[in-house]
Design a protein around this nucleic acid. Sequence first.
DNA 1: AATAGAGCCAACCGCACCTCG
DNA 2: TCGAGGTGCGGTTGGCTCTAT
Length: 325
Amino acid sequence: MRNPSTSASASAAAAAANSTTSTTTKTPCCSKVGLKRGPWTPEEDELLSNYIKKEGEGRWRTLPKRAGLLRCGKSCRLRWMNYLRPSVKRGQIAPDEEDLILRLHRLLGNRWSLIAGRIPGRTDNEIKNYWNTHLSKKLISQGIDPRTHKPLSDNSDHQNQSSSADANPRKASSSSSKANRKTNPNPNPNPNPNPVLSSSHLEDNHNDTALMMMNTSQLLHRETAHGYTSLLNGEDEARVSGLRNTGHHRRNEEDEDINYCSDDVLSSFLNSLINEDAFAAQHQALQLQQQHNQSTGNTAQLPDPLVSISTSAFGLGTSDNGGFI
DNA sequence: AATAGAGCCAACCGCACCTCG
DNA sequence: TCGAGGTGCGGTTGGCTCTAT
């Protein structure tokens, strides 16, 4: 990976110049009058990291002033989170990391922060970029729709009825790379407005393992009840509130039926999925179902985890969609 | 060597939720 | 209860670098 600081310093002057010309009709996130934009210089990086090391993170809006930076708080936060934080790992995404990203994306959709939380040292921005520039193309070249993880030929009816992982719960527009912008100015004319995890991605992958065992609303209940802590590793605590903040779940309607399974079970279930431990995942799935039935008194069966695990999980076998997940 | 196009990624944006007074 | 401020998220953009011609 290129050194952003190097490129930043090289283009700092141009960026500074741009900052005065790039004003559009868009309203800035905060008052940017007199504030610098564009790539960060090494001096700014030093100011910011020194300040945070001394005073700690937080109060981003007022931080620039206190640190002596002519940046908006959001910009400072982003720079710290994505580049300056000591825990940020630089360098190429390793094959095992790539594999993990693929699995997590299949499970979670474009929940970059969640995915990043499972990959130590990687930021959501980095993973998002890597996905858009590498993995989505890789999947396409393999004939797999990167949004649904299903064969491209199978997706004709999914385009309309289900959501893509790219569906932005907050915006009607879908993501597009620069290449897509050039070749396909309207890549997704009918985006599904549903939230990603809350329904779209998961429902779209209804044959998928996780979904067969925990339907959408159950997952939502987990989010609501426990703030997703069980799904996250130790580094994710800061992201927990963020998940609640995303608008991907709605708190109001589902505060009942929330304690049917333990955090431990669900957490290890997700870990099992990630680690391709089909047997463990199956075991966890059974536990989840038992807990769910006990707590709800519902004797109805969730989709058979045995079947779903053996047929559709992890691409280990065939499934309704031809073995693709 | 010059140029165009593609690849890549840091940074920006608007939005939504949370917290607190 | 309400509104302002703070924060974090995913999508998008701009521009630097690389590669092909």
